[in-house]
């Protein structure tokens, strides 16, 4: 994987997008109107290369989903740019999305609301195929995609309610991948699934994305799954990316206090019956501090 991986170093505000990155996110800010207005994402920058899986982790409400939605264009960005292969990703409006922009696709958290209940799943996967063909890609068949996500290819004529949650999520993944995206944004795709299904769906997503030489931004709060599938990890706290870099490096030697607290909260099934330390309220102030060394961390053995 290392030949595909590009550095996760935080780009400065005026940085020119790197041609190697499929997705370049530069200083994105997302605000929600209200009194007072809420800044959900406070200047996030990242770059993801082809065949690279990047995880975005953090507690509920830290702005992970807002960032994901701003990247694909569902959420309006207050400032900052998102580029897919050098082209700016526009905000989704009433106009139809340009064919080139169907190269970025999203998988949602809730598999039950991701599929149209009144259309056979094959038709819905066909929508993805159509998007790929419109972009000049090779045509494919919906049943091939069902097979690829581990489902019965004969199920193309079935309706979403005839599937379990995990199966629906696989179908949503099949539809997104049938569009042959260059970038897949997955917003907590496994958190609505049961524990045994979570790992298999996450592993499946990784292998399909890497096979297709696409990039993936995988949002999760399940750190053990992230460790298994992500090349790089971004840790987000209160709208900012506080630590980023090679997954294993962060896992073994977290530098930022928030990352440490996050990793300490994972239960260890070692039979000792220890409960993980609950993060202390008093520590929260320390978590907002900026630790420059925690950004853009390299794989063990790579040069600093």
């Amino acid at each position: 994987m290392s030949e595909h991986t590009i550095s996760g170093r935080r780009l400065s505000g005026s940085a020119v997008p790197r041609p190697a990155g499929v997705l370049t996110v530069d200083d994105v800010v997302v605000d929600y109107r209200g009194r007072p207005p809420l800044r959900a994402v406070d200047g996030a920058s990242l770059a993801i290369g082809a065949g690279e899986v990047v995880a975005l982790v953090g507690e509920s409400g830290c702005g992970k989903s807002s960032l994901a939605r701003a990247i694909v264009g569902i959420e309006r960005r207050t400032s900052g740019t998102v580029r897919l292969a050098g082209e700016e990703v526009p905000v989704l409006g009433l106009r139809r999305r340009a064919a080139a922009m169907t190269g970025i696709q999203m998988v949602f958290q809730d598999p039950n609301s991701s599929l149209n209940p009144r259309r056979p799943v094959g038709d819905q996967i066909q929508d993805g195929v159509r998007a790929a063909v419109a972009r000049g890609e090779e045509p494919s068949e919906p049943h091939e995609w069902l097979m690829r996500v581990g489902l019965d290819p004969q199920a193309v004529r079935r309706y979403p309610h005839e599937f379990s949650g995990g199966q629906k999520q696989r179908i949503a993944i099949a539809r997104a991948l049938a569009a042959r995206p260059r970038m897949l944004v997955a917003d907590e795709p496994i958190s609505a699934l049961d524990a045994s299904t979570q790992t298999s769906v996450a592993a499946l997503m990784r292998s399909l994305v890497v096979d297709a030489a696409a990039g993936m931004l995988f949002i999760s709060h399940d750190l053990s799954v992230v460790r298994r599938i992500a090349d790089r990890t971004l840790v987000m706290y209160r709208g900012r990316i506080v630590e980023s870099g090679h997954t294993e490096t962060i896992w073994r030697d977290p530098l930022h206090p928030y990352t440490r607290a996050l990793l300490a909260a994972i239960p260890v099934p070692d039979g000792a019956g220890r409960l993980p330390l609950a993060p202390q309220e008093a520590d929260r102030d320390a978590w907002t501090e900026v630790v420059p060394a925690a950004l853009g961390r390299m794989a063990p053995g790579e040069g600093a």
Partner: peptide, 26 residues
């Protein structure tokens, strides 16, 4: 704003198609 309508939008389908094929039947 439901996820499946947004998904179809992300796939580059027009608003009319969305309205007639994905919203109307529901």
């Amino acid at each position: 704003t439901s996820n499946y309508v947004v998904s179809v939008k992300l796939l580059g389908f027009s608003s009319w198609r969305l309205l007639l094929r994905d919203i109307a039947p529901n």
